[in-house]
Design a protein around this nucleic acid. Structure first.
Lengths: 156, 156
DNA sequence: TATAATTCAGAATTTTATTCTGAATTATCT
DNA sequence: AGATAATTCAGAATAAAATTCTGAATTATA
């Protein structure tokens, strides 16, 4: 399947990336196009997995997830086995992101918990159950200044 | 304003966090409630900033953002001045996240670029312009196994 | 250059969002 | 506890939006 994106596609992506609930009609008005044509494009972008999903960004504080931390996890085994480690990490609900990174450390994991006590509990209980983890190094976030993906930025 | 969330609110958040374009009617059907009642709640969650925004998750590969990296940035000055550093970092379009972290390093920055050449260019050109940056340490992501916020998980 | 495939506007239809009202529930104050 | 106020919600009515369909125009392909 062709995944070439023309200018209209990029405009749609730019409009939707931070306003995913914009109505198809409004989208059409912004682009000076018929609603049916825009709808067809959005559906196609979804089919082509250019748009992966639509998320509601929820305030972590509002749902009592006050602590954000990054954990570097050094894994024992080679890459094939580490994939299992990554999957085990991904399965934990507190784990928001798992990245396999270059260099001596193996994974960088983004974690949200209620507070530092529950972070400690997570590390003591859940992480300890995962085989192949050699060591962890935790970095606690004091304040988040920006947290917003913005992949499409059109130049005028 | 009261930000207490009852069970219905949490169910709404759980349904919307990974399906932000669900129609209000479908939401109402899932919850066995009138559409008007659900709509009122969603509006209130937006007002209360429990829902911060709605994002379309775009495939980075599809828009030619193939490289993901985390950069640790050690800043020269104290916290007040570092805020300016953080704001300057946040203003860069390649920068997706800026976290102020505990410990010797000051900021952890998540960056997406087309490739390693443009990452190097970003560091040589843009980062060098920002005053107060003492040193940087870059960690390149080889593969992302999970990347999906999931703040609300209801236990049955 | 012919043919096929894609894209899109406009109309018609189905579905949804939104507003309003009154009843029921919940919270607040004395 | 009991009265009052505030909030929440269902159901109806209306406005708006999504979706489907068709044929014309454009673009790609052979």
């Amino acid at each position: 399947m062709d995944i070439t994106l023309d200018n209209i596609d990029l405009q749609i992506l730019e409009l939707m990336q931070n306003n995913a609930r914009i109505s198809n009609a409004d989208l059409a008005r912004e682009l000076n196009m018929a609603a049916s044509a825009v709808l067809e494009r959005v559906k196609k972008l979804e089919q082509k997995k250019v748009i992966l999903r639509y998320n509601a960004a929820i305030s972590p504080q509002a749902v009592n997830q006050k602590l954000l931390a990054f954990i570097f996890i050094k894994s024992q085994e080679g890459f094939t086995c580490s994939t299992n480690t990554a999957d085990a990490l991904s399965a934990l609900p507190e784990v928001q992101e798992v990245h396999h990174i270059a260099g001596e450390d193996c994974f960088l994991v983004k974690v949200r918990t209620e507070d530092s006590a529950s972070l400690m509990a997570l590390m003591r209980n859940s992480l300890k159950q995962i085989p192949g983890i050699l060591s962890t190094k935790t970095t606690i976030v004091l304040e988040t200044v920006k947290e917003q993906q913005q992949l499409v930025i059109l130049k005028k």
